[in-house]
Write a protein that binds this DNA or RNA. Sequence first.
DNA 1: AAGCTAAACGGACCTCGGTCCGGATCGTCC
DNA 2: GGACGATCCGGACCGAGGTCCGTTTAGCTT
Lengths: 226, 226
Amino acid sequence: MLYAVFMSRALPSSPQPQEPLEPLQLMQTGPEADEPCLRADAARNRARLLEAAARLIAEHGVAGVTMEAVAAAANVGKGTVFRRFGDRTGLLTALLDHSAKRLQADFLSGPPPLGPGSPPLERLRAFGTAVLHRTAEQLDLQLAAQPEPTRRFTHPAFGSLHMHTTVLLRQIVPGADCELLAHTLLASLDPALIHHLTRQRGMPMERLEAGWLDLVARVTGTDRPR
Amino acid sequence: MLYAVFMSRALPSSPQPQEPLEPLQLMQTGPEADEPCLRADAARNRARLLEAAARLIAEHGVAGVTMEAVAAAANVGKGTVFRRFGDRTGLLTALLDHSAKRLQADFLSGPPPLGPGSPPLERLRAFGTAVLHRTAEQLDLQLAAQPEPTRRFTHPAFGSLHMHTTVLLRQIVPGADCELLAHTLLASLDPALIHHLTRQRGMPMERLEAGWLDLVARVTGTDRPR
DNA sequence: AAGCTAAACGGACCTCGGTCCGGATCGTCC
DNA sequence: GGACGATCCGGACCGAGGTCCGTTTAGCTT
């Protein structure tokens, strides 16, 4: 199978100075508006690269995904890989993009309890378990795709999760510092943490799920679901 | 000034396979038991290296701390740096070691409200603010010293913080999954997060502090301090 | 004091991420 | 269809982390 051979906005963003950012803007979620207008050859190469990367992962694991190897496997110059994806993180992220977009669509406009229609508290509960499972499925890739600490939270995909969590929280505990609380909640779903707990400490996923529900209950001051 | 020219256990640990770990054992906190028995020349070089690294940081910032540069500045071979500290993370961690040990001593046996003598809830509150401030002070170094995601939570220094948090939590909310809750609490003190919130989003430290107190209150189901 | 061994040393070497720029291509406009 | 400019391509190049192994040395033993 080959992952996302389309989508993802991650181009060689400029160095991004360390000035305070304005409040997060909502992510564009439209399935279009992506692939702005790549030249034909560029688009073809992009597809080849993603396919090659996916193949390499399947064969040698994430560690085998070397920028040079990917370039070679796609019959493309190394420079091309960087031009297209910016850096290794960008490439790996692009691989996750399909699933990320799907999750986003699910909680923004999918069926309850994840999507609108359920009360916020239930949506929040469902959100956590959904993220938890998605992360567990793609653990290796998620781990490898994690950017350096300085950029972890500026990543658009993260921004989307944070925004959603904040909005839900505001409906449940209007008086609280929901932006901060959202960070706390999301931190407990961090791929690195999940990796540690499940693979290094041997915790079963059920315990993590229960932990999430418990955490939500405590933080929102509500009862745990039966 | 030059940081810790002694202490720190970080040697070229073997690759550490991905098998589940047994429950965290308590950290040794004795000021001795460190520096197991380094040969004279090794000890001398170690000190030189740490001093050189500290100087480089002062002059060119953390980014200027290149393994080769440190080696050169200390009049030592590059191999020696790696032999002593394992990798860059190890070197940077050694630089933080002094302050880490001090914090640890403070909450293990220092005066209240951090140390024993205060009720657990107050100790937990104080613990968070202490960590928060220490991290904020050494942000750049802390950030650079952060190991790759796979090792973030196996690091002894982290283990110590986690253990302490867990123990306090158990006294406050005996019924809960304190091990998991501790992870959540600690995650909200993560250097990367603090960096993001303060430097990229411009939040004042007071807000983070308030956030910690609020979080502790919610998680433990107690009231916020006046 | 001489000898011996485990430990430490040093720097050549390798890999991999990332950059750069001369040259090839696409797509468009006359 | 020809020509022009923006975009893209490719691979040589660089820097930094990390490894390796032949050589040196501290410190104990006899």
